[in-house]
Amino acid sequence: MSAGGSAAVVASGLTRRFGALVAVDRVSLSVARGEIYGFLGPNGAGKSTTIRMLCGLLAPSAGSARVAGVDVARAPDEVKRRIGYMSQRFSLYGDLGVEENLELHGALHGLAGPRFRARRDWAVATSRLGDRLSARVDDLAGGFRQRLALVCALLHEPEVVFLDEPTSGVDPLMRRAFFALVDALAAAGVTVFLTTHFLDEAEYCHRIGLVAGGRLVAEGTPTALKTRLEGRVLLDVRTDAPGAALVALARVPEVAEATAFGAGVHALAAAGVGAEAARAAVAAALARDGVAASAAEQVEPSLEDVFLEIVRREARP
């Protein structure tokens, strides 16, 4: 571990402009060594631009960032040596074998001789791909590919690893296995910076930063973020006519948002509206439009509800 205290990633006032467009707007954050930090936001929120600056690929317009103790603007090449980067889509060579991918990533990072062999053995053991070394990567199941991409990104023992939507499109068992591996790395002191818009992935993070419109708009543990909607009432309205219910609820001031959900509609009450008032307003609106509903139970908001609510609030200046 190099200088820089216990924080492995520190950004202060990090800003990037492209002409008149402010893609990243004064982002300040600090990620501790061994922490799994989730950077969450919709497309176009500034996630990739931030990551490119943190990886030393793009110079900031203003502000500064230190990654693994190194200033990204002053020594971008040194930053690249100290970090790993994994994206499910881009970091493997599909027409090469497992072993060949490990050799290629080793060579790219200047690993050779006994050091490469030791890291290769670590990678094979960690990814449990020993019986598939000559398999072509394109022929591997998604879960194996992910584990290979992860160990390739870690071959050169980086202090910080950036994961870009590492488990999108795989089943929950494989996702759990993948995050067990990520957690073991974090326990060993590797700092994990994960970008995603996939809320199932965000749940595995120690802390989450929400980005919208280039700004960091909320930050906290998944548990703490969910309490951000505390006091807000979410009703699960059971109806056979969700389309008509959505139309009816769109005109109700007590309802901030209504969305299709299962065999019914989820209605998020406006701020300051209690469960009884919300239920009464929903029932009245449905009755007015002749929509039959069997129940309107209060349910717990998901991280996605919180996320959408914060993004919506931020979109209104």
Partner: peptide, 20 residues
Amino acid sequence: TGVDPVTRREFWLLLSGLLA
């Protein structure tokens, strides 16, 4: 798959309109 949560929710609104 691969669509962000804001667009996903729009997509679900669309689908529920079609169901209706």
